[in-house]
C-alpha cells in the first residue's frame, strides 16, 4: 500500500470532532479548517509533510496547525511520517509560546525571562501529555480544541501555565497602596484605549506591538485583569443598578481598581519607552 493520505479517502473525508460543548452540542471546526482538510486529503503523505514544514503563515501552501494535528492523530501514518509531523507540531507550539530575552542591566549579557521559560515548558509538557494519551488508545478530546482553533487552545494552556507561575512567584503580587502621584484619569483611559487599538492594528509598528504584548504579559494578575476589562470597555464603577463593572468583577472598591489601572499603565508606558528590550 502506498503512503498516501488520500488512499483511504472516501466520504466523509474529514472525521468529525467528538468533544462536547457545555450545552451538549459537538465541537465543530471552522469552515476554513474543514475546507483546508478536504483539500489536503488529496495530497500524498510526502506532499503533506513538505507543505507542513512551511513556516510563513501567509504562504499559499501553508498548512494550518489544526490540519497538521488532524493528520497526526489519524491512524495509518508510518513512524517516519509521524515523527516529521511530531517535530513540526512541537515547533509550532514552541514558536507560539516564545521566551523573550532581556539584557541584564549594565551588561551586554542576555538572559531569558524565567517565568516565560516556565510557561513554555508547562505548555509543551501539557501538549505532550495529550498527544501521548491520545495515542495510548484513550481518545483525548481536549485535542479537539486544538483541531478546532489551535492558537486559541494554546492560549488556554498558556493561561493555565501563567496562573501556576503567578502562584510560584507570589512576589509579583502587587500591593494595593494608594498612589496619588498619577496622571489625570481621562488621560490614562485615553492612552489605554490607544494601546488596545494598537494591539489589533497591523498598521502599527510591529516592534511597538511586540513590546506592548510583552509588557502586558509581565503585569501582575490583579493589574492585568483590570487592564483586560478596560480593554473590553467595562466601566470601573457605576451608580446604575445591574450594570457590570470592573469593581464588581474583581471584587474590590473603585479606588483600588483605579490604583491598579494607574500602576499597570505606568508599567506599560515605561516598557514601551525602554530601549533595552530585545
Amino acid at each position: 500500500m502506498t503512503q498516501n493520505v488520500a488512499r483511504e479517502r472516501t466520504q466523509p473525508p474529514v472525521a468529525p470532532l467528538r468533544k462536547r460543548l457545555p450545552d451538549g452540542g459537538l465541537y465543530c471546526r471552522p469552515n476554513e479548517v474543514e475546507t483546508a482538510l478536504t483539500a489536503l486529503l488529496e495530497l500524498s503523505t510526502h506532499e503533506l509533510i513538505e507543505r507542513s514544514r512551511i513556516e510563513d503563515v501567509d504562504a499559499p501552501n501553508y498548512v494550518l496547525s489544526e490540519c497538521v494535528l488532524y493528520f497526526f492523530r489519524r491512524p495509518g501514518l508510518v513512524d517516519d511520517a509521524l515523527h516529521d509531523l511530531f517535530v513540526i507540531l512541537r515547533q509550532r507550539v514552541l514558536r507560539a509560546v516564545p521566551v523573550t530575552a532581556r539584557r541584564l542591566a549594565g551588561t551586554a549579557k542576555l538572559v531569558e525571562k524565567s517565568g516565560e521559560q516556565e510557561i513554555q515548558e508547562v505548555v509543551i509538557q501539557k501538549f505532550q501529555e495529550m498527544l501521548c494519551g491520545d495515542r495510548g488508545g484513550e481518545y483525548d478530546d481536549r485535542l479537539d480544541c486544538f483541531e478546532c482553533r489551535f492558537n486559541f487552545a494554546l492560549a488556554r494552556l498558556r493561561s493555565t501555565a501563567r496562573k501556576r507561575v503567578w502562584r510560584d512567584e507570589s512576589r509579583y503580587e502587587s500591593t494595593d497602596f494608594t498612589d496619588n502621584a498619577g496622571e489625570a484619569s481621562e488621560e490614562i483611559e485615553s492612552a489605554l484605549a490607544a494601546m488596545r487599538n494598537a494591539l489589533n492594528d497591523e498598521g502599527v509598528d510591529f516592534l511597538y506591538r511586540s513590546k506592548l504584548h510583552t509588557a502586558i504579559n509581565s503585569l501582575p494578575p490583579d493589574q492585568r485583569r483590570v487592564i483586560e476589562l478596560i480593554f473590553q470597555e467595562v466601566p470601573i464603577d457605576s451608580q446604575e443598578e445591574g450594570v457590570t463593572t470592573i469593581a464588581k468583577l474583581v471584587g474590590c472598591v473603585e479606588q483600588t481598581v483605579r490604583n491598579r489601572r494607574d500602576r499597570a499603565f505606568k508599567t506599560l508606558r515605561d516598557a514601551l519607552k525602554e530601549e533595552d528590550d530585545v
Partner: peptide, 20 residues
C-alpha cells in the same frame, strides 16, 4: 479564570507573525 483567559486570547489574536 475567564478574565485571565480573555486577556491571553487577546494577545493570541493580535496580528503579527510568530518568529520564524
Amino acid at each position: 479564570e475567564l478574565i485571565d483567559l480573555s486577556s491571553e486570547l487577546r494577545l493570541a489574536n493580535a496580528p503579527g507573525k510568530p518568529a520564524g
